[in-house]
Computed example of a mutant assay.
Amino acid sequence: MIKVLFVCLGNICRSPMAEAMFRDLVKKEGLEAKFEIDSAATGDWHIGKPPHKGTLSILDKYRISSDGLLGRQITSGDIESFDYIIGMDESNISNILAVSGGQGAEKTFRLLDFREDLAKKDVPDPYYTGDFEETYDLLSKGLASLLEHIKKQHNLG
């Protein structure tokens, strides 16, 4: 089982959107039995809460299920158990490494680092920008490249 955790600041915008989109992408590839996919926050403001209405709206627009998405905070156990820990921006990466005491740095990545063709490497937080479409677009690009990377690393078709 390949375990992938998406992380953002509050776990109501970017990381749950990435979780839902990556589940959908993996399912379309017929690989859902090989993955465990989750998301978490670096902060504790939205624990137990559903995603932001803008996230739910964009997922609905593209017919991607948001079932089971609830905010939670990253733990040191997540650092140990997940194979890939994917932050949305440089601040998320710093916060993840702070939670882990620097452990797991080798499996912690910024999503858009998987896209060499993009100058922008941070996925802006739509909680502040209001631009959920931009977030969706950037996640689409980054998630496709992440899946290709994982498929190569694990010899998945």
Score class of each variant (00 low, 15 high):
M1V: 05
M1R: 12
M1P: 15
I2P: 08
K3Y: 01
L5I: 10
L5H: 14
F6R: 11
C8I: 06
L9N: 05
L9K: 08
L9E: 04
G10F: 10
G10C: 05
I12F: 10
R14N: 09
P16W: 01
M17D: 06
M21V: 06
M21K: 06
L25P: 08
V26L: 05
K28D: 13
E29H: 14
E32G: 01
I37V: 15
S39Y: 04
S39H: 15
G43V: 00
I47D: 07
P50C: 03
G54K: 09
T55Y: 01
I58P: 07
I58W: 04
Y62I: 03
R63Y: 05
I64E: 08
S66R: 06
S66L: 10
L70Q: 13
L70P: 00
R72I: 11
G77T: 08
S81M: 11
F82N: 07
D83E: 03
Y84H: 04
M88I: 02
M88F: 07
S91A: 13
I93E: 01
I93L: 05
N95Q: 11
I96A: 02
L97K: 02
A98E: 15
G101L: 01
G102P: 10
G104F: 12
A105M: 14
A105H: 07
K107Q: 12
F109D: 00
L111A: 10
L112S: 10
F114S: 03
R115F: 05
E116P: 14
D117I: 06
L118P: 12
K120I: 15
K121Q: 03
D122G: 03
D125R: 12
P126I: 05
P126T: 08
Y127N: 06
Y128K: 11
G130H: 03
D131Y: 04
F132I: 15
T135Y: 00
L139I: 05
K141Q: 12
G142D: 00
A144C: 09
L147A: 01
L147M: 07
E148F: 10
E148V: 08
H149E: 00
K151T: 11
Q153L: 12
L156N: 14
